[in-house]
Simulated assay, not measured.
Amino acid sequence: MSQPRVPHREAPPITCDEPDSFPWQVFHERHPVLIRRILEAVPYGQAERQAFAALLRESRQDQVAPLSPEAPDFDLWQVWGKEQFGRSWQQQRFLWAESYFYRRLLQAGGYFADGGWRGVDLFAPFKHAELDAPAFTADLTALDHQHALAEGEREQSLLMTAVWGNLADLGFTIAGKGPEETGALAADESDRLWPLLDGGLVTVVADNSGRELLADLALVDHLLAGGRAGEVSLLLKPQPYYISDATPRDVLDCLDRMTAAAGAAAGIGGRLRQALRDDRLRMRTHPFACAPLGYRDMPADLREEFAASALTIMKGDLNYRRLADDRLWPPTTPFAEVTAYFPGPVAALRTVKSDVVTGLDAETAAELDAADPSWRVSGTHAVIQVATPRDRE
């Protein structure tokens, strides 16, 4: 058997050390806003508030400090950070530094410590506000319209809603971006996605809670109810992460909101609840879901699940960054080559909100760069990309 193709050369990793770059802006502009919003929303005491301030100073000026040996994930981070601790934050790869920053946010908020803040989701006020917002109510009502569409049109509408739902990511909106309108697809391989769904296992790697999760759950319901999938494994974060990333608690909160509504939303929510009872829908968490690493470094048990799936659907920008190892690939580098290590068919449904992009044709890449050099981080474009083992031969 021939070996999978791999990119002809490794692209440079995205790092934090270039002033005014997107990673630099995240650490110097977005993170201070985020911490201010957290402290406005959650009544943390002085010890926690001081810990947040110290983390912000460290992440902009000092060396990366390791976790305390008492941390429940100390051993994991000793492996994940063995070459990073003691170096400046600016020297780090962006994927690693941003992931560790969010892990340290939980520490600053007392999430793992004994005491009153143990297990408290510091992002919960933002998540709950989104569930109660008029936009979420409008999305619930929009499911009635989708339900009335003809089968093929409804299927494509659900897929597109899942793609663009990532634009409602709370980290993006906190940074001042708004999900008022969707843009255009820079790559669309949706015609390759549907034939891969053969009634077997589909793994959906979730991204954000709230409006995006609602869109994802509507798509999952369609896959199960229409026989596209016999079972769905929904891979979620085991703990709060990246502001709005979905945990099992967020799924249950979203289902509660759906079943309390009227019309199609209530029907979808009820069917998904029953699917959970019947084990046709399984919520799954894994420590690697919060790892600062690309999927190239996934552990064996996760690799086995992806290999057993008829299709793995990777949602959102962060999962795309992890698929592509968060490197500055030339945008025409084939998606199948960048994901050659992946053990089974994979589809990426992503609103583009960071620098890494692959799989574009040369004309599209040139037109986008000429029209707006910031298009990679503005959320104005999205991709649907598919790769299978056959593509990598």
Results as ranks from 00 to 15, higher is better:
330 P>V: 10
319 N>W: 09
312 T>C: 10
363 E>K: 00
356 V>F: 09
327 R>G: 04
302 L>A: 13
331 P>C: 07
292 P>Y: 04
354 S>R: 01
302 L>C: 11
330 P>I: 06
382 A>F: 02
375 W>E: 14
339 T>V: 15
282 R>S: 14
369 D>P: 00
347 A>T: 13
341 Y>D: 02
279 D>S: 15
343 P>D: 09
288 F>V: 09
392 R>Q: 15
349 L>V: 08
339 T>Q: 05
351 T>L: 09
331 P>N: 06
387 A>G: 00
324 A>P: 02
291 A>Y: 01
361 D>N: 14
308 A>F: 01
392 R>F: 06
367 E>C: 08
360 L>E: 01
308 A>S: 15
339 T>C: 14
312 T>N: 04
300 A>G: 03
384 I>A: 05
296 R>C: 02
303 R>C: 12
375 W>I: 15
295 Y>G: 00
326 D>L: 08
358 T>N: 05
298 M>D: 08
334 P>Q: 15
359 G>W: 10
295 Y>E: 04
383 V>P: 01
376 R>P: 06
370 A>M: 08
296 R>Q: 12
371 A>F: 05
384 I>D: 01
377 V>R: 15
343 P>K: 09
332 T>G: 09
328 L>N: 08
294 G>N: 02
288 F>R: 07
355 D>N: 13
353 K>W: 09
374 S>N: 12
362 A>N: 02
317 D>S: 11
292 P>V: 07
316 G>L: 12
368 L>C: 07
341 Y>I: 01
325 D>L: 11
366 A>G: 00
371 A>D: 11
315 K>Q: 13
329 W>N: 04
326 D>S: 10
387 A>Q: 01
338 V>R: 04
390 R>A: 15
369 D>N: 14
386 V>D: 08
314 M>L: 13
370 A>F: 07
303 R>H: 14
392 R>P: 03
299 P>F: 12
315 K>G: 08
390 R>L: 10
362 A>T: 11
379 G>C: 06
393 E>A: 14
355 D>S: 14
362 A>I: 06
292 P>H: 04
393 E>Q: 15
331 P>D: 14
315 K>E: 13
380 T>Y: 00
364 T>F: 00
320 Y>L: 11
285 T>Y: 10
306 F>S: 07
385 Q>P: 06
349 L>W: 12
334 P>S: 14
